[in-house]
Write a protein that binds this DNA or RNA. Structure first.
Lengths: 362, 362
DNA sequence: AAGAGGTGTCGAATCGTTTCGAGTTCAGTG
DNA sequence: CACTGAACTCGAAACGATTCGACACCTCTT
């Protein structure tokens, strides 16, 4: 496209100057093979004299057949995806694990409005493996491109494709933990706030049907886990943030009093935090008037409560995917694994207050 | 290190199968040079038959002398740096701008405890340019490594090095905007909460001396801007988050009543949000009892107020740095630019309430 | 003194493209 | 009919490294 940069000093020039062969010079820098200390010193002197900074990574990669880069695909604008501290945790674990092996993390943000744009770029970008670490849509055209290039693909549930090796959590069962906890506390009317079920979602009530046809498998599975245990109103949030969580909760809390849930199960901590805000602004106390559970186990420092939540260690999940990518690059056939999560009780859940007891006392 | 992947189908094989020369086949895929439609079709058929997915990016890069990758250095763990929505905004703008040109974004997280570890990796990683988009320390050993390899470096204030081309904001003047605004409202006792001035900072009061010797230039400049206009207590926050902002504000608000500031100028919106929390929990109303200003102009959806803040469009800044990297790769000598920011008034600043008027009325 | 074994060095092949300059073909012109 | 271009195709030379096998030399054994 543009003017190539002035050619760097090459190993060949260094070798010439040191009066040794190219292969010997290479041996000095790679540290493999035997080289006499004297020769090595001569080569190093020549290198510094010429300003040679070590072998060109691209040439090494070509020869080695590996680029040392792992692509991490974020299926939405970064401002959206990384607004959630949980996503950042995963990314952090990923970066750490990949870095440990000298692998680079190529961040690819996919514009949901123009999925193919990234496809074109992906086709011409060097990478040894690709990871879809976040809750994305169940199908993604990128998988085709990547798999076609023979690049191993790691995911965490999405995309749902046989060519993707997953680090999976049983999302339905995990969400069930929260529901069961509330049932045990005695709640009978429980509402549910889901993550977006599809691109361009709006904050609105949804039916079981729509859950089944959701484009995002994580949201779908969690909602299934909820619906498997209780029949209750389900509201979809337009995004995984506080604002939409608050809006969604308002819909649930706006129901007639005898239908209004005494507990809300949210699919993410940020949504739960929004629900608590909604409750507070409606004059409801948490957990006395409303119990709220989250999902992820992030730190919400501005919340005066500790969320009851399904704790999912994000950094660990990221590390796990990083390790799988590493293994896949090493030539091992990657193996799907799964993952256990736990309910962590906080201060936002408690027994329901029966305003009008069903069986009035004397 | 590990077993090389099975060699992919090469252009040569495709050319052979199509019965054309290697160079012609290359022309078909690159779209340059004239190729008859018939030949092109034959090549494409051969390609699909062999499962050829286009030229190997690494080989292309070697030939072109450019890797198409721009490194973005984050000088702290991602969980820390990306906790701030402002950083995410910058990253988003950066990703967008780089993507526009088909450039990849290589995310490098630098462990502050082991600066050199990343140095070693950086030396062997293919990249055409490097960006330090965040408020980092004023010196960084990475600059030496990168500059030595002839890689153009873009920054936003830090590291302070002649080899780094900056997109600069006059931080001192920008912070001054907030201070002046409060002075105009009539405040006389104004406190300041700074971002960390050095690695491993603790939340504690600091003297002007320590400001001058700060390791982080952004924090230093803003504090200078503050101190140039008023003499007031300065507290350093250990991190740019709500919790530390709250702790820092507590220190300021714990001063004896006649020294206690009637306004707090925070160096970031998250810190300001923390300060508001501190005020609220101490029974102070904002802005009646305490005015608070932030810095960045992020969205804080859980705050019931709109922050008065120094608005710094993050995405735009990111885009700007991306464009500079692009230009530098194109061979243009990058030019440092600077940047104007504006004060945005919100609901968190107002005139001070004089508890004990200095000149009591009759 | 011949053979074995270890060190150190080197030439050449290879990784998979892109591109330059040269060559071929063929239609159109004078 | 010879001549000029344009349209197409091709061979060969990069790009900058790594690595394999061969070779030379030296030091021990027996």
């Amino acid at each position: 496209m543009t003017a190539p940069r002035p050619r760097r000093t090459t190993l060949k020039r260094v070798a010439e100057r040191a009066g040794v062969s190219l292969s010997t010079a290479s041996l000095v820098f790679s540290g493999k093979g035997p080289v006499s200390e004297e020769t090595a010193a001569r080569v190093r002197t020549a290198a510094t004299a010429l300003g040679y900074r070590g072998p060109d990574p691209v040439a090494s990669s070509l020869r080695a057949g590996r680029s040392g880069v792992v692509a991490v695909v974020v299926e939405s604008p970064l401002t959206l995806a990384l607004r959630d501290p949980y996503a950042v945790q995963v990314l952090d674990g990923l970066a750490d694990e990949l870095g440990r092996d000298g692998l680079g993390l190529l961040l690819l943000a996919q514009d949901p409005h123009d999925l193919d744009e990234l496809g074109a770029r992906t086709a011409t970008m060097a990478m040894d493996a690709a990871i879809f670490p976040f809750c994305g849509p169940s199908t993604n055209p990128l998988v085709e491109t990547l798999a076609g290039r023979g690049i191993p693909i790691i995911g965490s549930g999405a995309p749902e494709d046989t060519r993707v090796t997953h680090v999976r959590v049983d999302e339905a069962a995990a969400q069930g933990l929260a529901v069961r906890h509330l049932l045990e506390l005695g709640h009978e009317r429980i509402g549910h706030i889901t993550l977006p079920l599809r691109p361009h979602a709006t904050t609105t009530g949804v039916q079981a049907m729509e859950v089944e046809h959701a484009a995002y498998p994580d949201a779908r599975e969690r909602a299934r886990g909820f619906l498997a245990l209780v029949t209750g109103p389900v509201v979809q949030a337009a995004a995984a943030d506080v604002t939409e969580g608050e809006a969604a909760a308002r819909l649930l809390l706006g129901l007639p009093e005898d239908e209004r849930p005494t507990a809300i199960v949210a699919q993410s901590d940020l949504l739960a935090a929004g629900a608590i805000r909604a409750a507070t602004s409606l004059g409801l106390r948490v957990p006395e008037d409303l119990s709220v559970t989250g999902f992820d186990g992030i730190d919400v420092p501005w919340l005066d409560q500790t969320l009851t939540t399904v704790d999912q260690p994000g950094a660990e999940k990221g590390r796990r995917m990083g390790a799988m990518a590493r293994a896949a690059i090493g030539g091992d056939a990657p193996i799907a694994t799964s993952y256990d999560v736990m309910l962590r009780r906080g201060t936002t859940s408690g027994p329901p207050k029966r305003l009008r007891p069903r069986f009035p006392s004397l």
